[in-house]
Amino acid sequence: MSTDRAARRPSPRERTQRLLEEAARDLLRSGAPLTVQAAAELAGVSRATAYRYFPSNEAVVMHATMPLVADADQQLEVPDAASEADPAADLPDQASALVRSMGTWAFDHENELRTLLRLSLAPERAGTSPRRGNTNRGRWIAQLLEGLPDHVSPASRERLAVALVPLFGADAVVWSADIAQVDRDTALDVMAWMAAALVRATVDGDA
């Protein structure tokens, strides 16, 4: 039994890594700077030790965002996220349910998404890496578009994919809350309606 317990007990290195990863996630949630120094201070380790696990600030961002992306993927798997548990559901209704579900998730993680968006728009990051505030919306949209009927042309599919982009992730929160200045419930209603309208227009337009 003591051997089993020893085998399950994390090593000092594993404990330090876990502390730093938790610190990175806490920094992301609070909107604090995602830097090696900040993670080290929050985890209670020296900066030299932190650099052995996080060789750069970008590594801190990566470890902070991995659970966020995984959580978004888990949200996508709930029955009503794409089709309300009915694979034969009308595609506009599927789009509406998907956008509402992921919009709810985005508002629940508003601080994290805003931090990622702010980082991605920083001048020193321009042209160096893709935006990180959108999680996996490209995959969500691609899965939705798989349900389009065969008569929809490739050009229309591409146009729809682009039109759906602002309904996911940080962009959805920013334009609805900051620019349109509507409350969360209104924003979700509008985004769900927009998704259904866009899909319906695409299907009917190519009919």
Rank of each mutant, 00 (worst) to 15 (best):
V60M: 04
Y51D: 00
R29M: 02
R25Y: 02
G44V: 01
V45T: 04
M62Q: 14
Y51F: 10
E58C: 04
A64Y: 07
E58Y: 08
E41S: 08
H63W: 06
A38I: 12
P55E: 06
T49G: 05
L27E: 00
A50E: 12
A40P: 04
R47K: 12
Y53P: 03
V61K: 12
S46G: 03
A38D: 07
A40V: 02
A48T: 12
A43S: 11
H63T: 14
T49H: 05
P33H: 07
A40Y: 10
M62T: 10
A38T: 04
A32D: 10
S46E: 09
G44K: 09
R25C: 13
Q37D: 13
L27W: 03
G31R: 03
H63E: 13
P55M: 10
A32R: 15
S56A: 15
A50C: 12
A64K: 09
D26I: 05
L34F: 13
V45D: 06
Y53C: 14
L34N: 12
V45G: 00
L34M: 14
M62I: 11
L42R: 14
R25E: 05
S30L: 11
R52P: 01
L27S: 01
T49D: 01
A64S: 03
R25G: 04
L42I: 02
G44F: 06
L34W: 04
L28T: 02
A38N: 05
H63S: 09
A39K: 10
R52T: 11
V45F: 08
A32N: 05
D26P: 04
E58A: 11
A59Y: 04
R25W: 02
A40K: 11
E41I: 13
A40T: 12
L42T: 08
A40N: 06
R25H: 11
L42D: 05
T35P: 02
Y51I: 07
S56H: 08
V60Q: 13
T35M: 12
T49K: 05
L42Y: 02
Y51R: 14
S56W: 07
R29P: 06
M62Y: 12
V36H: 14
S56F: 08
A40G: 07
V45N: 01
Y53E: 04
A64M: 00
Q37F: 08
V61W: 14
A38P: 03
V36T: 11
